[in-house]
Computed example of a mutant assay.
Amino acid sequence: MAIHQPNLFPRLSTLAKLFAADCWIVLDDVQFARRDFQHRARLGSMSNPARHQWLSIPTHLPDGRSTLVRDAVVVDPDRSRRRVMHMLTQYYAKIPTGR
């Protein structure tokens, strides 16, 4: 059994934990943390490991800082989806796809 808070892009260690578990529990009854990875991810550069860029999804917290993860709402989901796809495409467009 494994339990984890949701993240925008889970880390490989989280995916490994999910793969190894017989039962997966999403911990969504905890406080939403603006400075955590629940609504954002740090994109790494393939050419320069020291360089990174943040990708964030705009969220509305109906109860302010005390909002639970499950109660957070994505602001304008269609626009957010397009923005994420555009940003990922731009950021990783020049990565070689084979040798």
Rank of each mutant, 00 (worst) to 15 (best):
R34I: 03
A50P: 02
L61T: 00
Y91E: 01
V30W: 04
W24F: 14
R35W: 09
D78E: 13
A33C: 05
V30P: 03
P62F: 11
L12R: 09
R11P: 06
A72E: 03
L43D: 01
Q90V: 08
Y92T: 02
T97Q: 12
V69Y: 14
Y92C: 03
A2F: 15
A21G: 10
P6S: 15
R40T: 04
H60I: 05
K17S: 11
V30A: 09
R51N: 13
R81D: 14
D71A: 06
R70K: 13
K94D: 08
L43K: 07
H86L: 05
Q5T: 10
R81H: 15
L15D: 01
S80N: 10
I95T: 15
L15E: 07
M46H: 15
G98H: 14
A16E: 13
H60W: 06
Y92M: 05
R81Y: 14
S13Y: 00
F37K: 00
H86C: 05
T89G: 13
R11A: 11
R83S: 14
A20N: 14
L18E: 07
K94A: 05
T97N: 12
R11L: 05
M87L: 04
V74P: 11
S45Y: 07
V73Q: 08
V75P: 00
D29S: 12
A93M: 03
R83E: 14
H86S: 12
F37R: 00
Y92H: 14
R81P: 12
D78N: 15
R83I: 09
M85Q: 10
S80C: 09
R70W: 10
L18A: 05
D22N: 15
W54R: 08
I3D: 07
A33F: 04
G64K: 01
K17M: 15
R34P: 04
S45V: 09
V26F: 12
A20S: 08
D22I: 06
L43T: 02
S80W: 12
L68R: 07
R42E: 13
R40W: 01
Q31D: 04
M46N: 08
R42F: 10
I3K: 03
W54P: 03
K17Y: 04
P10T: 01
G44C: 02
G98I: 09
I57G: 05
I25T: 03
I3Y: 13
W54S: 00
D36I: 00
F9E: 03
L27E: 08
P58M: 03
